[in-house]
Amino acid sequence: MIFVGVLIIFPLGWTLYLSLTDSHGSVRASSDFIGLGNYTTVLSDFDRFWPAVGRTVYFTATALVVEMVLGMMIALLLWRPFRGEKWVRVAILLPLVATPVAVGMMWRLIFDPNMGFANQMLSWVGIPPQPWLSGQATALPTTIFMDIWQWTPMVVLILLAGLTSLPEETDEAARVDGANAWQRFFLVTLPLLKATVIVAVLLRSIDALKTFDILYATKGKGGGSFHEVETLNVYAYGLSFDYNEYGMSSAVLIIFFLIIIGFMWILTRRRKGQN
């Protein structure tokens, strides 16, 4: 526990210290203590910081909602045994095997506007080619689709584990009372599964908030030429490794850390309320 604590406390403490200084150029260079100056500068940046916050929230919320809905649908389909069920489960879990960078590069080739397979499929049904990752309006939704493709299986695993642990007597009793499939799901299954759903939301939302690999692999520095997919992670990375503004990037990361902690606290309280 001491070892794990050091691994967490030291980087966090060092980042907090840097956020209170004007550190730039090199973390070993001399720096002056400026207090909350970096936080004031970052919070007043309406050109990069607040748009990055908006993209982070949009990315997380959209991916989370779609993944939870799709994950629940797939988990319900896999809940009852059927022929070939093992092969179907293996196929669904395949996206989890690949690393996010590999997934990003794969979809970058598929969504290539000139020779990508996605536009070729659209041409077969008479739809004009789309810019996908190269368009300002389509880049962020396209990266959200990539995240959904890779991480929906994780939600399926969590929800399927919760479904298999539910008692069958309640569903059978509702069936005997004449409840249809929708009524049994919304009035029996979903309330019993609520704690598991909150766990899935907690784990997946934290991962979505921290998404960096796919965004950087597909759009590069700054989240694209017009910062179209620049989330807080990409913004902080750019401040650190592109501009060497370690003090400001540390302030962004501390603010981001507080946002994640607050979100975790809210979901944890809701989960405890369900127990």
Score class of each variant (00 low, 15 high):
Leu94Met: 13
Val90Ile: 12
Thr142Cys: 13
Ile110Gly: 03
Pro51Ala: 07
Arg48Asn: 15
Leu253Arg: 01
Lys210Asn: 11
Ala118Val: 06
Glu169Met: 07
Ala75Asn: 04
Leu209Cys: 06
Ala91Leu: 14
Met115Ile: 13
Trp265Gly: 14
Met73Asn: 03
Met68Tyr: 06
Ile144Glu: 00
Val97Thr: 05
Ser30Gln: 07
Phe212Lys: 00
Gly84Ile: 02
Asp47Ser: 15
Ala181Cys: 12
Phe46Val: 12
Ser30Thr: 06
Thr196Tyr: 01
Met72Tyr: 00
Gly273Ser: 11
Ala139Thr: 12
Gly37Met: 02
Val66Asp: 03
Leu253His: 02
Leu215Phe: 11
Phe185Gly: 09
Pro100Ser: 09
Phe263Cys: 06
Ser205Ile: 10
Asp207Trp: 09
Trp124Met: 15
Ala173Asn: 14
Arg55Tyr: 07
Leu166Pro: 06
Phe263Thr: 09
Val103Gln: 00
Ala139Trp: 05
Leu122Gly: 13
Ala63Gly: 09
Arg271Phe: 15
Leu12Ile: 15
Arg184Lys: 14
Ile110Phe: 09
Ile9His: 02
Lys210His: 06
Ile8Val: 15
Phe257Ala: 13
Leu163Asn: 02
Gly104Glu: 00
Asp177Tyr: 07
Phe263Met: 10
Gly35Ala: 10
Thr268Glu: 01
Asp171Met: 06
Arg270His: 05
Leu70Met: 14
Val4Trp: 05
Pro113Gly: 08
Phe185Leu: 14
Thr40Met: 08
Ile9Ser: 09
Asn38Leu: 03
Lys86Tyr: 01
Ile158Tyr: 01
Glu228His: 02
